[in-house]
Design a binder for these strands. Structure first.
Lengths: 218, 218
DNA sequence: TAGATTGTTAATCGATTAACAATC
DNA sequence: TAGATTGTTAATCGATTAACAATC
């Protein structure tokens, strides 16, 4: 393995490639070219070839990429060929939705523990998992070798939960709360914020509206 | 207004700035420097100044940025100073979670209509909204001047829902389903995919694991 | 004033795209 | 073979960062 530093942009595209490849696989497509992948994803074929070439020679000149093989390879790169246990704190609406999403996570990723602070929540069952009290967090994370923590609590509690996750030895956090977390650098944080996403989408819409403004008909 | 093209990276950072600024505002902080914002967000201060300067001279030399004023300005840029109506299709777990999230959306963005295909869902109430049948989609979107559609249906139905949204005149889509949509270019699509996010996070975790393996230096 | 900090230009860095030899 | 398509190098494009005059 070359010790090359892969840019974040490349890493973020890999799961998207996987998504399309899984779709092609379902349709019994055997082989796909970078051209075809580029069409589907609105990406430059050269970029796709380059992204993949960082990790190995997965294609065949004159032929393209074998769909099944490439799926396997990308899964290896993302280490989805081994189980990845995930914990979630915050069994509210969003938390429960993500737990039930588990079906999609056939890729060895699995939410294996759910926690909440509210006594009324504790002991209830979500998609086969029993909601545990926060006191059990550290212990459970160690026992189940959980490596990623998902935060679906209100903004004010997010930092506190993140600290507890780090303390318990998690090394990645996916934060759905609208808060910027302050943590040691060695813990990787990804943000998944609905509001942020909508806001940037709104920016583009409203550019269009400026065109409409003049023709005020009623 | 200069007709300058703003890069997507810049636009995506604006809501994040807003998030920090709102937090500072809550804490009664009057003024903030690009330095301070950079600290909080792990961004280069020059980048923040440059981002903001695309849209106007919001700061004061020697002083910094007035928090309240900058919040107002960024909201204007994102056009959050006017109401933005949003529709959601798919009143499952995730859809309901997002509807209830509405509290966070004090920024003039609001889910104002919810739809579902399942007869058992139709007529039920979510956060004050009555779930409507798909037949009502086009009509409702026009009447309420809805500009953004959120998709929270299973993967296989996503393309169909997207087509209906576009047909009804929506000009932006936020897709939570794990599917790449094919639409006309004039409609802007953002993806918010839980699984994709987890996968890219997983990539980085596992790099760390490889580092732990070898404790030898030369 | 003196120190701080912006807005902006110039320098650097990195990512995307084009082009093409290798080869299936 | 002839056409197709990769992997990769070189060219281009764009984004980030450094530096500093302007000025509060």
């Amino acid at each position: 393995m070359k010790p090359m530093k892969i840019s974040e942009a490349v890493v973020r595209r890999l799961p998207v490639y996987l998504q399309v490849l899984n779709d092609l696989h379902m349709r019994d497509v055997q082989t796909v070219s970078s051209q075809e992948l580029g069409n589907r994803l609105d990406l430059n074929p050269a970029q796709i070839r380059k992204d993949l070439a960082y990790f190995g020679d997965f294609g065949r000149k004159g032929i393209g990429y074998d769909v099944t093989y490439l799926i396997e390879k990308i899964k290896q790169i993302l280490k989805l060929d081994q189980p990845l246990n995930v914990a979630l704190v915050g069994a509210g609406n969003l938390g429960r939705a993500l737990c039930n999403y588990n079906m999609y996570l056939k890729d060895n990723m699995k939410i294996t523990a759910v926690f909440d602070v509210h006594p009324s929540m504790i002991g209830t069952s979500i998609n086969g998992l029993t909601v545990l009290p926060m006191e059990k967090l550290a212990e459970t994370i160690r026992e189940l070798r959980i490596r990623i923590g998902i935060i679906t609590v209100p903004a004010v509690e997010a930092q506190n939960v993140a600290d507890q996750f780090v303390e318990a030895g998690v090394d990645g956090i996916l934060n759905f709360a609208p808060t910027i977390l302050r943590l040691q650098d060695q813990v990787r944080i990804h943000y998944a914020n609905f509001t942020t996403e909508l806001m940037s989408l709104a920016y583009y819409l409203n550019e269009e509206e400026e065109n409409d403004d003049e023709s005020d008909l009623d």
